[in-house]
Simulated scan of single mutants.
Amino acid sequence: MTLAYLTETFGFRATWNPELMLVTVLIGIAYFSLIGPLRHTFADAEPVSLRQKLSFAFGLLLLYFGMGSPLNVSGHYLFSIHMVQQSLLYLVMPLLLISGTPAFLFRHLVARRWVRRALQVFTHPIPGVLMFNALFSFYHMPVILDLAMNNLLMHNLIQLLLLITAFFMWMPVLSPIPEIHRLSHLKKLAYIFANSVLITPACALIMFAGAPLYETYVNGPTILCAPFFSAPIDKSMFAVPLSPLDDQRLGGILMKLVQEITYGAVLAYVFAAWYRKEKDQPDDQLLPH
């Protein structure tokens, strides 16, 4: 299944989503044009590192790749591809965008009291860990997923809510400013472990089900849902190489695999930062008083 075939079959707009491409480019232009002038408005603002810039750029690429590239078309026919989309959009992409956002941009964001209070509520570790995982499990109930995959409004609404709650989920681990909830290193390790436990039941249900759960991936989708439009499609437009049950099991495995790799990498990063902090601490601060 080549890119040329997908473009010819579904059309350039459905395959490549130029509207989302434009939005992604505009966000990138806004980021790189604002970080300089905004930095000078904060006396103690540190320069934006190359690592941060690359992290934000890769995060934007993943945002487009997950929602607007041919991966979106393929995800309507193959559940395994759909789960790869989910993994990139909700587990990896927020990490990159938050890591690439300098502290002074966060401070500019929370300068308004209502924004700061809202973030303090929704990025609290308990709502943060519960909202995303509950919504993720809710979305993967067969009746909900089948409805979302065949209704543009429901599809985009759930995708937007999952994106927002994914950012809330990662904020306690990655927040660069104390105005937004920031955990100690030990609490971060426990928080990430709790996330890995809470997401497991949804993946296990998908992997170990004895029959296909989703009508969309048995009889095929009826419409192609993209961020800014929908288009009628049918199963004959795409050659599916796997049986629905094998495809479903592969999807659960891929989701769990990406989740374990992502959470494992963040755990290792947090532990290394904790170790460096303890190592650099003067000996007299380690002694009991």
Rank of each mutant, 00 (worst) to 15 (best):
E215T: 15
G75A: 08
G36C: 06
A43Q: 12
P221T: 01
F32Y: 14
S74L: 09
S243Q: 14
L189A: 07
S87T: 07
V197D: 11
Q285C: 07
P176I: 01
T41E: 09
Y64W: 09
M67D: 10
H289A: 09
F168N: 01
V110K: 00
G264H: 05
I177V: 12
P227G: 04
V258A: 05
M21N: 10
G28F: 09
L267A: 14
L20D: 04
S33M: 09
P212Y: 07
W16M: 03
A103D: 06
S137D: 14
M131A: 10
A272I: 14
M237Y: 05
R107H: 02
I180M: 03
T262P: 00
F42L: 06
G264N: 05
R182F: 05
N195H: 14
H181M: 09
L242W: 13
A211C: 08
C203I: 02
A272W: 15
K188V: 04
L186A: 13
P212R: 05
I144H: 01
L163G: 08
F122G: 08
M141A: 14
P94V: 09
R117V: 11
L286K: 15
L186W: 10
G210V: 08
V73A: 05
Y31I: 02
L130M: 11
L38W: 00
A265L: 01
M154A: 15
P127M: 12
P125A: 04
L54V: 14
L22F: 12
H181I: 06
M169N: 01
F136T: 03
L163Q: 13
M237P: 02
L54F: 13
E179V: 02
F238N: 00
H155L: 13
A231Q: 12
R51K: 15
H140T: 09
M237T: 03
Y139Q: 09
N219L: 10
G251W: 05
L286P: 06
L22D: 07
L119S: 04
F208S: 10
A14T: 08
S33K: 14
Y214G: 07
P125D: 01
D234W: 07
Y214E: 04
G100R: 00
V92D: 00
Y139T: 14
M149K: 15
F167K: 06
V240T: 09
R13G: 06
T7E: 11
R112N: 08
H40N: 14
I29R: 07
F122H: 10
L22V: 14
L130Q: 03
M255N: 06
P201K: 11
